[in-house]
Structure formats: C-alpha cells, structure tokens
Design a protein around this nucleic acid. Structure first.
Length: 618
DNA sequence: TTAGGGTTAG
C-alpha cells in the first residue's frame, strides 16, 4: 500500500557528521570535552545544540565505540532533535535505527519534517508505516503530520487508510485530526468526504469552517463556500483575516459586487479581522473581478503596506478588464517605486502588450527575463509567444516557442493561433499534428486556431474533418467561434449554399459573428441578395453591429449599387453608429500613446512620424 | 511538536 521510497538503512541518509573526520570537528567541541573522562555523559547532558551534539556523536563513534555509550548519545540526540522542529530527516532517520526503545516524539518530528518538505512529503508516509510496524502507537500529533504528508503528495488512498486508523484509535474526534482530514480530502478533490468529516466533527472551530469553505472554493463551488461562511456567521463564530481572504476570493470568482461590498463592511466592522496586506490584496482583487476598478484603486491606494501581489492584483486585474493601458501605467508606477516584478507581473504585462500591440515593451520584458536569468518557460514562455505573435513578430514567437522546455496546450495554442493569423496555415497544422506525439491534448481554443488555419489556406476538406474530430475524437463540443470558423471556411471557398445549410443545421442559435462570416463570404463572392437577408438577421440579433453595416455597404458598392450603399451609411449615421476606427499604439519614453485612423491631433504626432521615418501611416 | 490565506495566459 505504501510506496517504498525510503528505508532507514538507505546509505543516502548517513548523516554528514558521521562521515566527516573527527579531527576537523574537534575545534568546535566544548573546550573541556574529553571522551575518555567519566564526565563525558554529563557534558552530553548539558550540550544544548544539535550541532554540538552531532559533533560529539561523530567524534565518539571513533573514540568510544561501546554500544551503550552510543545508545545514550543517540537517545539524547533524538530528544533534542524532537524539540527543534522541523528537523532534517536525513540526520534524524539513522538515529531511529540505533534506538533500542521506540521514540514517538522523534518519529513525529521526522514525519513533520518530511511532510513540510517540498519533494519528500511521500516519505513521511513511509516513515509512518515503519513506525507502525515497530509497534509504536501514533498520537494526536502524529496523525495531522501524516495527513499533511498525504495532502502534499495527493495520496488520498493512504489518507483514507490513516483516517481509518485514526477512528480505530479514537483520535478522529480531535479537532486537529478532523481539520487535517478535511484539508487532505479537499486538497485531493474529494469534497464529499471532506464534508462528511466536517458534518460528523463533534468539535468545530474557525479553522474547521475555513478549511471547509476553502475546499468548496478551490473545487469551483464558490456559491457553496459563501453559503457556508454565512452559516458560520449564524453560529456566532467570528471570522478572521484568513477566512475573509478565502471568502473574498470566492466572491471574486462569482463576480458578485453586492456580496463583495457586504464582505468589505464585515472586514471594517469586525475587530477580529486585521486589515493586513493579505486582506487588502483580496479586496483589491475582489473589486476588480466584480467590475469596480475605481474602488479597487481606492483600496489599493489606501493600503499602508503593499507587496508585489498587491501590484500584481492591480496589473493583472486591469488587464483582465481590458484596461490594458491602465495596467501598463500601473506597471510603470510599480517600477518607479522600485518594486521588483515577479513572474505573475511579467505575464500580465506581456498580456497587455499583446493586446495593445506594444512590441517595444514586450521586448523589454524579454530582455528583462534574459538579464535576470529567468527562463522563458511555462506561463512566462506562453505569454511571450502570444505577445510576439499578436505584435506581428511571428518569427520571434517561433523562436521562443522552440526554445521552451515545458510546452503545454497553451503554448501550442498560442503558436497555432499566431501562425494561422499570420497566414501560415500549413505550419499551424504541422504543429497541431505534433501535439499527440508530445502527449498534449488540444482544447477548444486550439481548434479555433486549427480551423482558422484551414480557412486561410483554403483547406475545406481538412477543416471539415477537424471540426468532426473535435467531438468524435477529442470530446469537445463546438462553440459559436468554431461554427463561425466553419462558415468562414466554406464561405471563403465559395461554398455559399453549404455555408447557409451549415448555419441552418446548427444545434445552437447563430450569433452575429457566425452570420457576419456568411456576410463576409457574400462580399467576396458578390452575393447581394443573400447579403441583404443575412444583414436583416444580424440587425435583429445585434442592431448596433457597425462592422456588418460597413460590410453590407461595401457589398452594395462592389455591385455598383452606390445609392444603396450611401443609404446604408446614412442610416448608420442616423442611428449614431459610427464605424469603430482602426487604432494603433506606440510607446514613447515609457508612455503608451494611442492613435486612431486619420487622427493627427496628438501633440506627439510629429515625433511619431519622425520615429517611423515617415514610412508608415498612423 | 499539531490545522486554514492573496495574484498567472489563448
């Protein structure tokens, strides 16, 4: 049942001190230390540091090899180890092998040390198993440590076994045990079991409620988490900052501003909640996700202490709201104040750069990564690929993508969509065919890229097949975007009737984008009457869709129906439907300047022209 | 010697 990763006689666990020469350690021994004297044991008793004891231990192995003396030393050492938590299991484990009598505190200390280590948590279970095999009975300290090890290593089956043992030993009613049980189940995504433990706990404290609430929120049941919070309030239990951070994050997920304001009032009124940097960050994040960027700014400005997460919440929150310029402005401010950005900051900044087309700042982030020896991998690598692709540097995007060690579905998708947008459909499809070999499953967005690639290259049959494969092979339900891509694919290829038929057979109502794709096909192939009927449908669904009016007016003018074209433009004006102007932005001296098509009003226009060498129109 | 916290891409 328990994985055999570690054994106490594993040579890798021989303590450093034991393999070192005793002469090099002699200088740090107590000055009156003489292992040959009878006072040796009393020296040992008065030695308070593990380091000193380790040295005595190492020295005594050579000078006093008597088993009894060794045992005395080991016992004393183990007691000290158990007192200084967490301990290095690599040193403490061999001691266990030397002890004649079982030592529960030392086992507890070792299991805790392993459970809290990043890579060795599963070994905590192995040591626990060894402990049981030696007939040592765990106590109310052991079980939480073992359960923590289970949670960290996602070992739910082992956790269930420990649960059973805790019940048998009468430890399951201990509030620490039940709380760690809940956490173990919640971390392992077994929310029902967590709830069962919660419901059956004879004693529930704030940690019990908070753990259960967090379990719900992490599993995506934010509403249930919030519900439990109010249930807790109903039992007259006062929440603290930790609880509020979790409930605020649930509220952010729900995007419920009313609830968010209610929670903010709770924070202000409740003396139990300390408005520290954690609660402040959670409030900023909540306000942004609930759509009140101004209040988020206010909370942010009033925070007496901010950390990098506070800045990240603002920068990424604004970017998620589509306020990319504001997001970059925040980043500039953060830099001016000398706050060091982290991965999260840079991902958000790259995202804003990608959406604004600000290549220069994007390049700066890339150079920053190089300067700080941060590998462009994972989240950062994906954001960099996306930024380069969206800013028109598809070759740079490919270069970053190729250099990445850890590629996932997001990396492939960013690259496929980028290539498709740049008219390199063939390369995009080649990359898609590479995904199964790399063991990476495509998702819905990958297929948007794949279908766009087919559409741009005119691969009708391939496009049809990929569309079919979505549901038959990959178990993905096509969304409106995919239907839009298919209509575009068929329409561009001149298969207008089939495109119409395709729309008629859609299992979901077509939106303005799907119909817009058909309208685009009418423009390419000069289908005026069909265009008119499609336009009528679009007007019904989205009466203010300016792009469709412009397209229809162009269909008229292409067919030399100038009067109709002008009539439509006039109707647009009457309805106050101005065509959304083309827009570009440029960074100059660290400031993002946005220009609309034909706009020469910006005071920096002349400078920009000079910068662009007059070769590109703004 | 024991349990619960925020920000991350198409």
């Amino acid at each position: 049942m328990f994985p055999k990763v570690l054994t106490t006689n594993n040579p890798s666990f021989v303590p450093m001190a034991l393999s070192s020469s005793s002469s090099s350690l002699a200088s740090t021994l107590p000055h009156d230390f003489n292992p040959q004297k009878l006072s040796f044991l009393s020296t040992l008793q008065t030695c308070k540091s593990i380091q000193g004891l380790k040295q005595i231990h190492a020295s005594s192995i050579k000078t006093m090899p008597s088993p009894d003396t060794q045992l005395t030393i080991s016992t004393r050492l183990s007691a000290l180890c158990a007192q200084s938590l967490p301990i290095d299991p690599r040193y403490a484990l061999p001691l266990l092998a030397q002890l004649r009598t079982p030592n529960l505190p030392l086992y507890n200390a070792i299991i805790r040390g392993l459970a809290t280590s990043n890579n060795d948590s599963i070994e905590g279970l192995v040591v626990y198993k060894q402990m049981l095999s030696k007939g040592i009975v765990p106590d109310n300290y052991t079980i939480p440590f073992v359960l923590k090890a289970c949670a960290e290593s996602r070992a739910v089956r082992e956790g269930e076994e420990v649960h059973g043992q805790a019940i048998k030993m009468g430890l399951a009613s201990d509030v620490y045990v039940s709380n760690t049980l809940m956490r173990m189940y919640a971390v392992c995504d077994v929310i029902r079991s967590a709830r069962k433990v919660f419901d059956s706990s004879p004693q529930r404290d704030l940690v019990s409620w908070t753990t259960m609430i967090q379990g719900y929120v992490k599993m995506g049941f934010a509403r249930e988490g919030v519900g439990l919070f109010f249930e807790m309030c109903g039992e007259n239990l006062q929440a603290d900052g930790m609880t509020l951070v979790i409930v605020l994050s649930a509220c952010a997920r729900l995007g419920d501003l009313r609830l968010g304001r209610k929670l903010h009032r709770y924070v202000i009124r409740n003396s139990n909640v300390n408005l520290d940097v954690f609660v402040g960050n959670a409030l900023v994040d909540m306000y942004l996700k609930c759509g009140d960027a101004n209040f988020a700014r206010k909370v942010f400005q009033e925070m007496p202490i901010k950390n990098v997460v506070s800045w990240n919440s603002m920068i990424s929150g604004l970017a998620q709201k589509g306020e990319f310029k504001e997001s970059l402005y925040m980043f500039r401010k953060m830099q001016r104040l000398g706050v060091k950005p982290d991965d999260v900051t840079l991902v958000a900044v790259l995202n804003s750069c990608a959406n604004l087309g600000v290549l220069e700042l994007g390049k700066w982030v890339h150079a920053y990564l190089d300067r700080n020896q941060i590998r462009a991998d994972g989240f950062i690598g994906n954001a960099l690929v996306d930024m380069y692709a969206k800013c028109g540097s598809i070759d740079q995007a490919c270069w970053v993508f190729q250099a990445m060690n850890r590629k996932d579905v997001y990396s492939y998708t960013a690259m496929i969509v980028g290539l498709a947008m740049h008219g390199q459909g063939g390369k995009a499809l080649d990359l898609f065919s590479e995904m199964p070999k790399m063991g990476i499953e495509p998702d819905e967005v990958t297929f948007v890229g794949v279908l766009t690639a087919c559409s741009h290259v005119g691969l009708v049959e391939e496009g049809r097949k990929y569309f079919e494969d979505m549901s038959t092979i990959y178990n993905l339900r096509p969304q409106l975007e995919h239907y839009g891509c298919m209509v575009d694919l068929l329409g561009r290829a001149g298969l207008i009737n089939e495109a119409e038929e395709f729309i008629r057979n859609m299992p979901i109502e077509p939106d303005a984008f799907v119909l817009g794709a058909l309208l685009g096909a009418c423009k390419i192939h000069g289908k005026v009457e069909l265009g008119e009927s499609v336009m009528k449908k679009i007007e019904k669904i989205e009466p203010r869709k300016d792009g469709a009016y412009v397209l229809m007016s162009n269909i008229y003018s292409s067919a030399n129906r100038w009067r109709d074209s002008l009539k439509l433009r006039k109707a647009m004006k009457e309805r106050n439907l101005e065509k959304t102007p083309g827009c570009s932005s440029i960074e100059l001296d660290g400031v993002i300047h946005e220009f609309q098509k034909g706009d020469k009003s910006h005071p920096k226009t002349k400078e920009i022209y000079k910068l662009l060498d007059g070769s590109r129109a703004i």
